[in-house]
Amino acid sequence: GLAIDNLAGLVLTVSLLATVFGYPADFALAHLVPGTALGVVVGDLLFTGLAFRLARRTGRTDVTAMPLGLDTPSTFGMVFFVVGPAYAAARGDGLEAIAAARHAWHIGMCSIVASGLFKLACASVAGPIHRLVPRAALLGSLTAIALALITFLPTLEILASPLVGVVSLGIVLASLTARIPVPAGVPGAFLAVVAGWATHAAGTALGWIPTVAPHAPLEPAAALWPVEWLGGGGGG
């Protein structure tokens, strides 16, 4: 589940950068994705080691490691407030697409390091704050972000193409929320995707749904084993 969630976060990051800001998708696959994936793997291994150490020290068998990965609010924040604007500003200053992408990539890495240093500096006071502030207050900001990013923005996407979105949403609500059994035991989420695809295909063929311009060409092989990021520190 954690791997799929992180994969979805990476796909979301590359998709938003490419579609909203025109960020080169091939560069993102070759530079942004590998380092992010490696960082997640290393972080999860470190947390796993800490969990084993705690289990040995306490003699407990119910210790679990804290999952590390890409959370949705941070993903949107990095895309819309750091990497994306940095790329757009670099392009506005006359840099070529690849040079601007590398420039934005470097700024993104610097922001991650700065964020880590800030969290490290705040770690000493996190415990007292957690004890003094009610949990509801601590989670309030996350709840607001969740409502804005995870609920409101996807709703706009659904209503942008209601013929497709409402059909899929209805199936999800009926199968996963109302617990209405799906014939033949088909997973509700899978049925929603298939129904949405079929509705879009039929609507496009009948002229009910306008055709969308194709995305920028992408070479899938570039994502299989990218190594450019290992020597991509120069320039920008």
Score class of each variant (00 low, 15 high):
D5C: 00
A8R: 02
L10F: 06
V14N: 02
V14H: 03
L16D: 05
G22Q: 04
P24R: 10
P24G: 02
H31L: 05
P34Y: 07
T36M: 08
G43E: 08
G43N: 12
L45R: 15
L46R: 12
F47T: 07
T48E: 07
F52H: 13
F52C: 09
G59I: 10
T61Q: 05
T64G: 02
A65D: 08
G77N: 05
G77C: 00
V79R: 01
F81M: 15
V82E: 06
D93G: 11
L95A: 14
L95Y: 00
A99D: 15
A100M: 10
A101Y: 03
A101H: 08
W105I: 04
H106S: 06
H106E: 03
I107C: 12
C110P: 00
S111Q: 13
F118W: 03
S124E: 02
A126S: 15
G127F: 09
P128K: 07
I129R: 13
R135E: 14
A136P: 01
T143E: 05
T151Y: 08
P154R: 09
E157D: 03
A160Q: 06
L163R: 14
G165C: 03
V186H: 03
L191M: 11
V193W: 13
V194Y: 00
G196L: 07
L206H: 02
P210F: 01
P214Y: 06
E219R: 08
A223C: 07
W229M: 03
G232M: 11
